[in-house]
Write a protein that binds this DNA or RNA. Structure first.
Length: 111
DNA sequence: ACTATGACAGACG
DNA sequence: TCGTCTGCCATAG
């Protein structure tokens, strides 16, 4: 894995404000890579950051992570509908353009 | 070198 | 609302 890329992805995740979520695709667009790569980075290094604010485009997470994530969501006031279908997580997606500002800053301050 | 498979997404039937 | 297919990048076999 390209360390630079990993850093950029993780940095992007950290820009997601409390109480909001972003999809893998959102982050991918922000970082400038394919969504699958973001998924891969998260699977490897996600536990180091606020991974529960990253959901799939449909608002779901793998079963194992869902339990943990739900607790976090409840704590942050993120509403969701149990039983997958019609998950309301989508209503909490961040405005990508606003996220981009903070992200640019974060990446600049990195080097 | 080639294929299959992912914490994925978008288009289409 | 489901399958299916294609694009995406890295890894494993």
């Amino acid at each position: 894995m390209d360390e630079q890329l990993v850093e950029r992805v993780l940095r992007a995740v950290e820009q997601i404000p409390r109480g909001r979520v972003a999809s893998y695709g959102d982050l991918a667009e922000l970082v400038g890579v394919g969504p699958r790569l973001v998924g891969r980075v998260m699977s490897l290094y996600g536990s180091n950051v606020t991974w529960w604010r990253v959901t799939s485009a449909s608002g779901d997470l793998p079963l194992a992570l869902a339990d943990e994530a739900r607790a976090r969501w409840a704590d942050e006031g993120i509403t969701w509908k149990p039983n997958g279908r019609g998950c309301r997580i989508r209503d909490h997606r961040v405005d990508l353009t606003r996220l981009a500002d903070d992200y640019e800053r974060a990446v600049r301050d990195l080097g």
